[in-house]
Design a protein around this nucleic acid. Structure first.
Lengths: 246, 246
DNA sequence: ACCTGAACACCGTTCAAGT
DNA sequence: ACCTGAACACCGTTCAAGT
């Protein structure tokens, strides 16, 4: 809510890499990734931007550290989960782990964007994946199939899906194209809601039915949690079939 | 390779939104997304950065336009594909479309990052999805299942997977943590190659077997194309089962 | 109508200087 | 050992001014 400086908490406590990273998480949680500047993080700590460079090498170092912090938060949540029993216990266990990891990402909506390209650098992420591999191994998977499985799950293994297209978003976006040209060059003029049915008949048909089936979902909202679980179970069930066929 | 200015192609041709976008694609293709600055795009056109603002509203407008340009390139490739025949023709058709789309992304490695958050604004992307929906509808899918399917496919529907963790990347990254603190706070010290086996036994076991099975893949490289197709087929096969069970 | 020079606010980062 | 002021190079963007 308010910075330490504003609260009058003078910088008695010395800075540290750890305090810098925790401050960075707070800044990103409040203002998103684009608000995460060296100056803003320093302000959060009641210090100057230049002081951060004594504890982190550069901004990218903070981003790497952020991945590690969030992955550690995931590991904390995941390692207190109950152990799998027999049968398809592997699937329940993996499912539970992934869904708890997802809860962490729901608390830090900026995190997927950072994980997307920096997950490989974090030991905590490796630890998380090590747990997944162990669970699948215990469930009777070959290492080869586990390897394919991790690729197939992609970011879903970590608990987020990052979908580029949300069916139900109207085209054109928040603001109109702007500029004098008008024509988008490669594209037709921005279609309004009615015109869309003509240009994208199948899409319009699908959306109409979805809205009809669930009137609560005004303007084409989707249940993210249900869709995430649908996709997850589709993949896990497919993998289970392959596991048994060996 | 060289800018128009360097080549001596004086800015006789007036600027336009279209030329700006095509120049932006060239800049991103050559230098990646971080090299895409207003000044650099202008330079590519032999103009000044300020001149761009007569044809685009702001930089975000360029990014939206970029999505549309690449999506149009995908549509061009995809709409010349042969029509599906009977049986599970829907699957072959969808598969072909997605794999051709993927080829476009291989030519523009920066594009997934932009699509990730801006795909909804592009009419060309809508057009692409409209095609997918039509194909699945013809294949006997309900709109409801198509809707789930698009969420389950996620970015794979567009032809890219954007995996946050590539099994085989060593931890620690290109450069060491830096800074005086040493300890990463939440994480153990950076494990070297041998120590990794102790800290991440399952991961190490998996990687050892993969490297053993395919000695060509020195240092844990994976066949991206094969993994993409594995995940894609896993999902498409699962969907086909659900389609038949209705 | 189309383009630009000068200028502004804001970045990340360096470095010599403070305590 | 730890922090900072001043400064630099580089962003996106505005605006009055040129043709």
């Amino acid at each position: 809510m308010s910075t330490e400086a504003e609260r009058g908490v003078r910088p008695r406590i010395p800075l540290s890499r750890d305090r810098v990273l925790r401050a960075a998480v707070r800044v990103a949680d409040e203002g998103g990734l684009e608000s995460l500047t060296m100056r803003r993080v320093a302000e959060e700590l009641g210090a100057e931007a230049m002081s951060l460079y004594y504890h982190v090498a550069k901004k990218e170092d903070i981003l790497d550290g952020l991945v590690d912090v969030i992955a550690a938060e995931i590991n904390d949540a995941v390692e207190t989960l109950p152990e799998p029993s027999g049968g398809t216990g592997w699937k329940t266990a993996i499912r539970r782990r992934i869904l708890s990891a997802r809860e962490v990402f729901l608390r830090h909506p900026w995190a997927p964007g950072v994980f997307e390209e920096r997950a490989g650098a974090s030991p905590a992420v490796l630890r998380y994946y090590d747990g997944l591999v162990g669970l699948m191994r215990d469930g009777g998977f070959s290492y080869d199939l586990i390897h394919h499985a991790l690729h197939a799950l992609g970011s879903r293994a970590l608990g987020f899906s990052q979908e580029p297209f949300a069916p139900g978003d109207g085209p054109g976006g928040p603001d109109s194209p702007g500029g004098p040209g008008g024509g988008a060059g490669t594209a037709a003029p921005p279609p309004d809601a009615e015109q869309m049915a003509a240009q994208f008949p199948h899409l319009a048909g699908m959306m109409a039915e979805i809205v009809h089936d669930d009137p609560d979902s005004t303007l084409g909202w989707c249940d993210d949690q249900a869709e995430f679980e649908f996709g997850l179970d589709l993949i896990l069930d497919g993998l289970d079939g392959m596991r048994q066929r060996r």
